[in-house]
């Protein structure tokens, strides 16, 4: 998973704090795009449970606007933010709308939709995600002309497949074809999904090897991927890898919350294994 050293909310630039009523008002108007953009982010961040939020975000998912490179605005910025927010609301009602966005020509929007479908554990997304990836690393995973982006947002799509959790043979076969992708971030995403779906330690071992990659960005990605998979044998290598403590702490949180002992009772307990993990986290604060 691509990871910044530390996410900082955009709130200072956006002015005074707002409440839900104000966020809904801003999202429902269409003159001021930056107000809509912020409102969509806000509703996701606050995990709004207001039915109006779901309705307005699904509506915003249909909004289109050109990229304004000079102003630093991405294409379809409001729709992309709406897609991200819908993943955080945790409401299945968003799934049909996000599936539709998965067919959009804008790969940035497809990327946001894929991530949110993963967060929503949407089984209905497995088939369309697999069919978009089926052409493999040389087609779906090939770079777009004059761009560093790939034909498909492979990283997000692979991660979504891992999060959704369906481990049929044909799903695994599609993901496995990306293990050999030349970009280490795609390789990492494929290993993460396979580790989540199969628990097979050979995928974990490959992620450990990426923790020693010369590029910091790759080590960060491997950290996030090990955390998402909750693979506890990674504890010591995570502690040792050369990366920011913030990233290590996020990865170790994943080991605690997604790890083996968490699976049984539905929540992690304070057994010896978990206590040892917490001790390593304490040292990184």
């Amino acid at each position: 998973m691509a990871a910044d050293a530390e996410p900082i909310d955009p709130s200072p630039a956006a002015g005074a704090p707002i409440d839900e009523v104000e966020a809904l008002r801003r999202l429902s108007q269409s003159e001021d795009l930056s107000a809509q953009y912020y409102a969509a982010w806000w509703l996701g961040r606050m995990r709004s449970q207001n039915p109006e939020a779901l309705r307005l975000l699904c509506q915003a998912l249909g909004q289109r606007q050109p990229r304004q490179a000079e102003a630093g605005v991405e294409a379809n910025a409001v729709a992309r933010n709406a897609a991200r927010a819908l993943g955080k609301l945790g409401q299945a009602g968003a799934i049909p709308h996000l599936l539709q966005a998965l067919d959009d020509p804008d790969d940035g929007l497809r990327e946001a939709a894929a991530r949110s479908l993963g967060e929503l554990r949407a089984s209905a997304a497995v088939e369309p995600l697999c069919s978009r990836l089926a052409s493999g690393p040389t087609v779906a995973g090939a770079p777009q002309p004059k761009s560093s982006r790939l034909q498909e947002p492979c990283e997000a799509m692979l991660e979504a497949l891992g999060d959704i959790g369906r481990s049929e043979a044909q799903v695994l076969a599609v993901i496995e074809s990306f293990v050999t992708h030349e970009r280490p971030l795609i390789h990492s995403a494929a290993c993460r999904a396979l580790l989540q779906l199969t628990g097979d330690s050979r995928w974990g071992e490959q992620l450990l090897a990426l923790l020693e990659h010369p590029q910091l960005q790759v080590r960060r990605a491997a950290l996030m991927d090990l955390g998402a998979a909750g693979w506890r044998p990674a504890l010591e290598p995570i502690r040792r890898t050369l990366a920011e403590n913030s990233l290590k702490l996020m990865a170790l949180r994943g080991l605690v919350e997604n790890g083996d002992s968490a699976a049984g009772a539905g929540a992690a307990r304070l057994d010896d294994d978990t206590t040892a993990l917490l001790a390593v986290m304490d040292d990184l604060l």
């Binding site: 605690v256 917490l278 986290m281």
Partner: peptide
Amino acid sequence: DTPVVRLRSELALA
């Protein structure tokens, strides 16, 4: 709402 924070606080209390 974060499980790892609850666990660490529980450990501190214990």
